[in-house]
């Protein structure tokens, strides 16, 4: 039983990193496909489409930072805390990354027709980034209470 609890602790430490990577991979892939499609239809401004499609890559960085913050000797006493904080922070990052990719894809699709809305169309993606930052910051704050 103790080994299982310790394994959960390790899962909690690595979960933000793994789920953040999944988030960034899927999010960048979704937005990247939109930018490739938009390049076929537009005559220029390709660089900004590619730039937007890299937006979801921040989630893997948040995941790495949370992983290093949680990284410590795993004991039966702290394994539950590491598991709960790490796994839930990772899930939050994963959803934020995937949906930010979709928001970026919509922004690219809309701004290829109307370049004047380029900045405004990124607002939903920026708001989702804000939610991801909440999950990141409070994972760091709460992890300070785990012995």
């Amino acid at each position: 039983m103790t080994e299982f609890v310790l394994a959960l602790g390790w899962l909690g430490i690595y979960a933000p990193m793994a789920l953040g990577t999944i988030a960034s991979a899927i999010g960048c892939s979704i937005a990247g496909q939109a930018s490739i499609g938009a390049m076929l239809e537009t005559e220029g401004g390709y660089g900004r489409f590619v730039g937007i499609s890299a937006f979801p890559s921040t989630f893997v960085i948040y995941g790495i930072v949370i992983m290093f913050t949680l990284n410590r000797e795993v004991t039966p006493e702290n394994a539950g805390g590491l598991f709960g904080v790490g796994l839930l922070a990772g899930i939050a990052l994963m959803y934020c990354g995937i949906w930010q990719g979709r928001a970026c894809a919509s922004a690219i699709n809309a701004s290829k027709e109307k370049p004047e809305i380029f900045g405004l169309s990124l607002a939903p993606a920026a708001i989702i980034e804000g939610f991801g930052v909440f999950a990141f910051v409070f994972a760091l704050v709460i992890s300070a209470g785990i012995s």
């Binding site: 979704i30 939109a34 490739i36 499609g37 076929l40 894809a105 027709e113």
Partner: peptide, 14 residues
């Protein structure tokens, strides 16, 4: 799949 044809739809004029 909600993301199946992202590149195709993005390559079409609105």
């Amino acid at each position: 799949d909600p993301d199946e044809y992202i590149a195709l739809v993005s390559s079409l004029p609105s």
